[in-house]
């Protein structure tokens, strides 16, 4: 495992820890999109099906379990925890996220590495992950008051796939791995969707101002 991959995974883990910290310590999910969190549950559930069939490493198995358990528990907190759920911005979080699922699935049926159940679901999870942040970005744009934990959560979540892009370049060059257009292009799209957010995040960080996205 190269340094970019490890940094990417750690950033991903960090983003989830930041979100859980917000939920546990502030007992709040204000500014967090349940739609995006539900999409992540679907992403992880379809991608990590192989947890029962294929063993890669202890690291790989533990990380998969962590991502599955944390994504399910975040959705549970937002839907069912009696304090946390009252802080959910239901009226602002109106992105019709189901409309992302069907096109991603159809695309995975059409464009995949191999036409098997596992490979199609794996591909679907990559396509869906690329766009899963959209409801969250829309909600942020509508939020007049983005707290630091929410801003940092989205920043780390975006940085993770960006670091994976370097991991793929490294693997292609150093390990002479195959061309892997499906994850590469999905990852590129995923990172590009954050471009606007990154711009305003870094700008507000430099000026030591509160993060606010233009409507």
């Amino acid at each position: 495992m190269n340094v970019f991959r490890l940094a990417g995974d750690m950033t991903h883990l960090l983003s989830i820890m930041v979100l859980l910290l917000k939920i546990h310590s502030m007992k709040s999910c204000a500014g967090i999109s349940l739609k995006t969190q539900e999409l992540y549950v679907l992403v992880f559930a379809t991608r990590y099906l192989d947890i029962f069939t294929t063993y890669f490493s202890f690291y790989n198995t533990v990380m998969k379990i962590v991502f599955l358990v944390t994504s399910f528990s975040i959705v549970w907190y937002m839907r069912h925890h009696k304090v946390v759920r009252q802080t959910y911005d239901r009226d602002q979080d109106t992105f019709r996220h189901h409309l992302l699922v069907i096109p991603c699935f159809l695309l995975a049926l059409l464009i995949n590495h191999r036409f098997t159940v596992r490979e199609v679901l794996w591909t679907f999870s990559l396509y869906l992950e690329a766009v899963a942040i959209l409801p969250q970005l829309v909600l942020l744009q509508r939020s007049r008051n983005i707290d630091n934990l929410t801003g940092n959560y989205v920043f780390f979540l975006g940085a993770y796939r960006g670091l994976y892009l370097f991991n793929w370049i490294y693997r292609y060059m150093a390990e002479k791995s195959q061309l892997r257009w499906i994850p590469w292009i999905s990852g590129l799209v995923q990172t590009a969707l954050y471009a606007d957010f990154f711009y305003y995040y870094i700008k507000s960080w430099k000026k030591r101002e509160k993060l606010q996205l233009p409507a």
Partner: peptide, 10 residues
């Protein structure tokens, strides 16, 4: 099962 390319990633 057979190990597919890239499935070692998260």
């Amino acid at each position: 099962g057979e190990v597919m390319v890239g499935h070692d990633e998260l």
